[in-house]
């Protein structure tokens, strides 16, 4: 069995990605669950992942089982378990370098930039297990309000407000503290998404907004540059560039341009369907020893 240790049930993108991964592992016939410090489950997105308390998991895991984690701070404690470890790399902060150098840790990556980082910093090729968008985000023909721009104010609020000034007809709708279904509903009805978190590792919300049919205006990010293509499916650039582009948002001569970006964005989102990630997870699952795929307490062959 694989137990994925996460730090809390809070609203952080990496936690949702962990649950999605456990769901996919289960679907591929790998016994897996989430472990949180207090055994509480996240309730802000849809999943079927079983949840246990971390202490309970560490007490009950045994020969043949393994632990997965994505927060480098967990490395030392989990290493003491003596069990095989999987590091699900969801960011490329140098803090992860000691993890990458640990030969007892198998490294999994979700996007190309992380793959390249692991190769450079750890000296070995990780396994690509992908990342995907929850089905609820995909645009399903809802009427959109072109004047509504959603954004996540937790990072880059000032930039969002500055951008809004460049386009006075734009109505800023902050997304914070909402569950995934509500976030998706807001994005599916909005015309624009402002991705303002500078230095973002991947920027899953921007990708979700693309699937929801938003025109995305994004500051440059790291891993997310694999799906953000300036002038093709979104607008990417420094704040000045984004301001200039936003100033033309409602110019009649550019209407077809925005429509083109919107359609390309939806097409990009389709490349990150859960089914596409499932193919990668299946390939990873096929490499696991049979005893690691079994439920807890099952005889190990």
């Amino acid at each position: 069995m694989i137990v994925y240790a996460v730090p809390s049930a809070g609203i952080f993108g990496g936690i949702k990605v962990a649950y999605q991964f456990v769901d996919l592992l289960q679907a591929e016939g790998v016994a897996a669950c989430i472990a949180t410090p207090d055994g509480k489950a996240s309730g802000w997105f849809r999943s079927q992942a079983p949840v246990v308390a971390r202490a309970w998991a560490l007490d009950h895991l045994g020969d043949g089982d393994a632990i997965m984690f994505s927060l480098p701070h967990d490395h030392a404690e989990l290493r003491r378990s003596g069990l095989p470890l999987f590091f699900h790399c969801q960011g490329t902060d140098p803090l992860i370098d000691p993890v990458l150098r640990d030969e007892n840790v198998t490294v999994l990556t979700c996007w190309q930039q992380a793959h390249d980082y692991v190769l450079a910093a750890g000296g070995r090729a990780p396994t690509d297990v992908g990342i995907s968008i929850a089905p609820t985000f995909y645009h399903r023909g809802e009427l959109k309000d072109p004047h509504v721009a959603t954004h996540m104010p937790r990072r880059g609020r000032e930039i969002a407000e500055q951008l809004a000034e460049a386009c006075p007809d734009l109505h800023l709708v902050p997304i914070d503290g909402s569950d995934e279904v509500e976030v998706a509903q807001m994005m599916r009805r909005a015309g624009v998404y402002l991705a303002t978190a500078e230095g973002e590792w991947f920027g899953l919300p921007a990708l979700e907004a693309m699937a929801a049919g938003c025109v995305v205006f994004s500051v440059p990010v790291l891993g997310g540059m694999e799906f953000l293509e300036d002038g093709i499916n979104c607008v990417v650039g420094d704040v000045e560039h984004l301001e200039r582009e936003l100033a033309t948002l409602f110019a009649p001569a550019r209407a077809a341009h925005w429509q083109s970006l919107r359609h390309a964005a939806i097409a990009t989102g389709l490349r990150y369907r859960r089914e596409a990630q499932a193919v990668k997870v299946a390939a990873f699952a096929a490499t696991l020893p049979e005893r690691m795929r079994r439920p807890l307490g099952q005889p190990r062959v």
Partner: peptide, 9 residues
Amino acid sequence: HGRWSIDAE
């Protein structure tokens, strides 16, 4: 309570 994942669509 709080220990199940929410899967109601």
